[in-house]
Every structure is written in C-alpha cells, then in structure tokens.
Simulated assay, not measured.
Amino acid sequence: MRENEYEIIVEFGETDGAGIVYFPNYLKWFDNATHRFFREMNLPLSQLTKEKNIILPLIDVRCTFEKPLHDEERIVLKTSVGKMSAKTIQFNHEIYLDGERVSNGYELRGWVFKGDDGISAQPIPKEIRELLSCDGVIEKERSAI
C-alpha cells in the first residue's frame, strides 16, 4: 500500500504546562498527514470536494502515546493506507523521534458524497482504490508545519 512521510517541528503552542505535547495535537497531525497524503498524489481533498462533491469525514480515530514529545523536537510522521472496504479507508499513522516510534494510531474515513439533500456514503471508485493500493512511497516533502 502507498505510504508517505514528512517532518514536523513541535511548536511551543502545541505543549501543555508540563512542556509535553498536548494530546489533541496528535489528531491534528494525523488529519494534516491525510490531507498531505492526497495532495502529494496530486489529488487534494479540496479538489475532490470542489469537483466531485466528495468529502472524507472521520468515522473513527485512535492514538496510542508511547513516549512524550516536547517543544522544538523534530519528528517524522509516517502515514500508510491500511484496510479499505467498499466505502471506507483506514490511514495508519506512526510518529518517530530520532528513529524511535513514540506514537501510533489510525483514522478511519468514509468516502462520502455531499449533495444538496445531505451526505451519503459511496463506493470508492476503482481508480482511487488503485491509486491508494499502489506500492511505494509518495515523494517525500520535508517541512515544518
């Protein structure tokens, strides 16, 4: 399955009073990673919404915290496609500090049509399934968020 990775520099505002990354930031990073994943396949989610009325709402999320992270640490977020059903995609996320995994989790997202009458889950098109199933690493982009 396809995978992607990029580097993040932990910002001071992402930490709590103890200087440890505040837990919701992991979910923000997961969400950003999924959006980046699609952008780096030249298929931004904003384009899917604008041109096809497709959104990928979050259905389920999980994060396991193995070691704390702190301000100004450089971390690598690795994202890969996990299980795909007819209408859902699981994105697996792992966070590394100095080559050691410090957190992992997933997002389960639906393939959903957003129309005037509301939203409805749709089968993931064959070409999208093939694109997501393709082996290999998406071109790596290193940047701070």
Rank of each mutant, 00 (worst) to 15 (best):
residue 63 C to P: 04
residue 88 T to Q: 02
residue 6 Y to D: 08
residue 60 D to V: 01
residue 86 A to N: 07
residue 44 P to W: 12
residue 115 G to M: 06
residue 36 R to V: 13
residue 57 P to I: 04
residue 18 A to R: 00
residue 138 I to M: 11
residue 97 L to Q: 12
residue 138 I to D: 13
residue 107 E to Y: 09
residue 104 N to E: 09
residue 144 A to W: 00
residue 35 H to R: 11
residue 99 G to C: 00
residue 131 L to T: 03
residue 143 S to K: 12
residue 56 L to E: 02
residue 11 E to I: 05
residue 26 Y to I: 10
residue 86 A to W: 07
residue 7 E to N: 08
residue 95 I to H: 00
residue 27 L to H: 10
residue 33 A to E: 09
residue 45 L to K: 12
residue 72 E to K: 14
residue 142 R to D: 15
residue 133 S to L: 13
residue 132 L to N: 08
residue 111 W to A: 01
residue 95 I to N: 01
residue 29 W to Y: 10
residue 92 N to K: 12
residue 107 E to I: 06
residue 130 E to F: 08
residue 108 L to H: 06
residue 48 L to N: 02
residue 14 E to M: 01
residue 54 I to N: 00
residue 108 L to R: 14
residue 32 N to H: 14
residue 89 I to L: 09
residue 126 K to E: 13
residue 78 K to N: 01
residue 141 E to G: 13
residue 124 I to T: 09
residue 58 L to A: 04
residue 41 M to P: 03
residue 47 Q to S: 13
residue 6 Y to R: 06
residue 41 M to Y: 12
residue 59 I to F: 02
residue 124 I to R: 09
residue 87 K to V: 14
residue 40 E to R: 01
residue 71 D to M: 06
residue 70 H to E: 10
residue 76 V to Q: 14
residue 124 I to A: 00
residue 145 I to M: 12
residue 8 I to F: 05
residue 70 H to R: 05
residue 87 K to S: 15
residue 101 R to G: 03
residue 60 D to T: 04
residue 58 L to Q: 07
residue 116 D to M: 05
residue 34 T to V: 15
residue 4 N to D: 04
residue 50 K to D: 09
residue 38 F to E: 14
residue 48 L to E: 08
residue 133 S to V: 03
residue 18 A to I: 07
residue 1 M to E: 01
residue 41 M to F: 14
residue 81 V to I: 15
residue 41 M to D: 06
residue 17 G to F: 01
residue 143 S to V: 10
residue 24 P to L: 06
residue 96 Y to D: 00
residue 73 E to L: 04
residue 139 E to W: 07
